[in-house]
Design a binder for these strands. Sequence first.
DNA 1: CTGAAAGCGCTTACAG
DNA 2: CTGAAAGCGCTTACAG
Lengths: 349, 349
Amino acid sequence: MKRINSTEIAKLAGVSRSTVSRVINNYPNVPEATRERVMQIIKENHYYPQLSGKMLTGQKSRTLGLFWVTNSTSIANDTLSSRYFMSIVDEAASKNYLVLAMIVRNLYDPENIQFVRRIFSEGRIDAGIFVGVDLNTPVINDLLDAGEILGMFDYTDPAHHPNLVAVNFEKNSGEKLIDYLYDLGHRKIAIINGNMARLSCIHRNESFLQGMQKHGLPIRNEWLAYAGITKAGGYNATKQLLQDSAGDLPTVICANNDWAAYGVYQALYEANISIGDRISVVGIDGHPHNELAYPGLTSVEFNFKEMFTILVDRVTDLIETGQTGQNEYYLDGRLVIRNSCKKLTELPQ
Amino acid sequence: MKRINSTEIAKLAGVSRSTVSRVINNYPNVPEATRERVMQIIKENHYYPQLSGKMLTGQKSRTLGLFWVTNSTSIANDTLSSRYFMSIVDEAASKNYLVLAMIVRNLYDPENIQFVRRIFSEGRIDAGIFVGVDLNTPVINDLLDAGEILGMFDYTDPAHHPNLVAVNFEKNSGEKLIDYLYDLGHRKIAIINGNMARLSCIHRNESFLQGMQKHGLPIRNEWLAYAGITKAGGYNATKQLLQDSAGDLPTVICANNDWAAYGVYQALYEANISIGDRISVVGIDGHPHNELAYPGLTSVEFNFKEMFTILVDRVTDLIETGQTGQNEYYLDGRLVIRNSCKKLTELPQ
DNA sequence: CTGAAAGCGCTTACAG
DNA sequence: CTGAAAGCGCTTACAG
């Protein structure tokens, strides 16, 4: 496809390429009459400067790379944050940025790493937004060391690279839930952790344990499980848990995340244990399905749209000003009470 | 960010830039020893040629623009096809293409049109994939006339532009459903159409009517509604329909699409009409929720992943070879029977 | 087999 | 106010 270029526009408008460029880039030193004449020709010919030409003169691509790290084959069904894809594209658009969307299966695999580095090095993007990254992933540090600008969702950087910004979940969601459950009279509390390579999962776990300690509740080994952030993980962990503690079941199972909580639901259904009545369940995240589930899932819920909006805004700040006010944000969650937890009228033991 | 360029690589390897370029682009006329030495330097320095430089010499960007046309604010919840976003990115990646994802609210709005034209003209993308476009949208023709390569989902081009490829739904889904319902004994059939500006909706409507005619069933005005492809549309249409035909309700409501069918469900719930038992419901599309709905929704279902895979493949064919075997594909749907339709033991009237 | 040179489409000092 | 020229990072005939 041969496209019209600035030389032809210049010819048509009877000016030089310099002037065409000045008009396009809104330089002040162009008389109104000239500007209008040139603009007219530009409009008529649907002329937009080629990005490659502009970039070679040092302009930015105004493109954000969105790296979705997941080994799932169906992003729409399996990662909650993918539902907020549109928030990212919309917020970027409002700042006049485009989004190059990529899926990365394994950030430890050499080919995948090379792919990511290539995208940055080719100059396709001004910054990268990463979702689903384990803590201390080497390529992230390499990119930062190479001077790239990175926006991370649920991540912390011990080295405090100045061009990293992270938007994270509050640290104390677990404790919020334990407090609530304690008030309901629960004392026999089981905890299903998520993927402990993720910042949020570590915090949630610590916070659960802290809540237990605060209320003087013992943490029993057979009531402490490690699943993933998937439904299957929660399902398997619960089956194991029910088996291991058959003689002395907990009165509540705290899932580290809503997806795992749905797995807990499934295992309880199958074991014919009434959710809420016999074993209460809680989650964390704020999955849109929480409301539709039966019974509705009590969860500490986050405003993902807001989180991604902040992330995009701070990343574009970094691109444009080289600095951001704050490098790590921790956003508050809100305890949303539904029907998955019942009050214990008589305290066990 | 200052990146290493081919001049520096050339210097480090003791060759000219030409040779560096030959190595990178796998030219045959480079001795193995030279090739290895240069590759070594390239690897060590994580060098990848700048895209802008390459493009200026006529290379392609190897990027597909994905234009999701929707006025919804939540793509993940509201457009079924957005769930298959990952299929597009994955299939593109397998062909070594990237995906620039964009959301377009209104393809008739001058600003939006300008945006779309800019993306193409800037040379950011080699082709555009459009989802959610009304038939005869002017900008689509303009792009085709300008020589752009377009991949359309659910669209037909009367002008048969050679560089358009479309992947569509089969035309006869409506008739399939009517046949099935007729066999169950249904004679009083209501039809809720979707957005009649869309190819699939037109075909489904025609096919419903054809099925009715084939079986000699009358099409009653009060049982024929026009909704959109949203839950709200189906809901409102059903409420109206129940009101207008209170004295003589249909025994089945055919929704043009699954989203609308969920709206039908809601309206029937609210009216305390048992789905299946008193009024059967069918949809078309194959929404993942169909199985989870209560009762499960009988629907003609499509393999969206396959459809998008074909679309991406044909578009990359067009980019690379300038031709595609076929310009419009119509993919078969499969009648999936669940519990939303009951057999009528005694035929009404 | 390999380097010097031209050229892609821009922007931006520079000179006037 | 405006044009000619340099330069960004590549690739590709061209010449040797």
